[in-house]
Amino acid sequence: MKLYVLITALLGLTLFTPSYAAADEKPIYTSWRNNIAVGGYDTVSFFVGTPQLGKSEFSAQYKGATWHFQTEANRDLFLANPTAFAPQYGGYCAWAIARGKLAKGSPKHWYVENGRLYLNFNDRIRDRWLADKESFIEMADERWPDILE
């Protein structure tokens, strides 16, 4: 019984630990359950300060992932210039990229700087990112996209 409890506890810990991806990852982070970028959030909505979940009826394909948008107008804005609205580092955690790792980025832990959207794994990591974001951006820019290889 004690072994069962120990194994269950260890498995539970892994569910709440950043999962670092292996090499040869996709250029856009998506969940293993689906191929939807940014957790289904409308990336255009981050730039007006109110991130909103997109709708599947307003979707688009970009870099092998499906992107959802709140409105047809937002989808059209994205398609006109996807690099202006797609999160940096393919939506992987910006802090992890700066540290030479791959981890999922979360649309719930985001930051826009100089017209660029950055995602982080969680609030704690986002706080670390914000403490020295200029240095982290420089380090992450140097590693991206080579870190995917």
Rank of each mutant, 00 (worst) to 15 (best):
L3K: 13
L3T: 12
L3W: 09
L3F: 12
Y4K: 13
V5A: 12
L6R: 13
I7Y: 09
I7V: 15
T8K: 11
A9W: 13
G12A: 07
L13T: 11
T14K: 07
F16M: 10
T17M: 04
T17R: 02
T17F: 01
P18S: 00
S19R: 01
S19W: 02
S19C: 01
Y20T: 12
A21E: 11
E25D: 15
Y29F: 11
W32K: 11
R33C: 05
N34Q: 04
N35M: 02
I36R: 02
I36N: 05
V38I: 15
G39V: 08
Y41M: 09
D42Q: 08
T43E: 14
V44W: 00
S45K: 06
F46I: 00
F47S: 03
F47K: 01
V48G: 12
G49C: 05
G49P: 08
P51L: 15
P51R: 12
L53W: 08
L53V: 14
G54K: 01
K55R: 13
E57L: 07
F58Y: 10
F58H: 04
Q61C: 04
G64N: 00
G64K: 01
T66D: 06
H68N: 15
N74H: 10
R75L: 10
D76E: 14
L79E: 15
N81E: 02
A84V: 02
F85P: 03
F85S: 00
A86V: 06
A86D: 07
P87M: 09
P87N: 09
Q88K: 12
Q88L: 09
Y89G: 11
Y92E: 07
Y92Q: 03
C93L: 10
A94V: 04
W95M: 05
A96C: 02
I97D: 03
A98D: 06
A98C: 08
R99A: 14
R99H: 13
K101H: 14
K101W: 06
K104H: 00
G105I: 02
P107K: 00
K108W: 10
H109Y: 14
H109V: 06
Y111N: 14
V112Q: 12
V112H: 09
N114Y: 02
G115F: 01
R116M: 02
R116L: 00
N120P: 03
N122M: 07
R124T: 15
I125H: 03
D127T: 10
R128M: 12
W129D: 05
L130F: 04
L130P: 08
D132E: 11
S135D: 13
F136A: 02
M139R: 13
D141Y: 00
R143G: 01
W144T: 06
W144H: 06
P145H: 06
P145S: 05
P145N: 06
L148N: 03
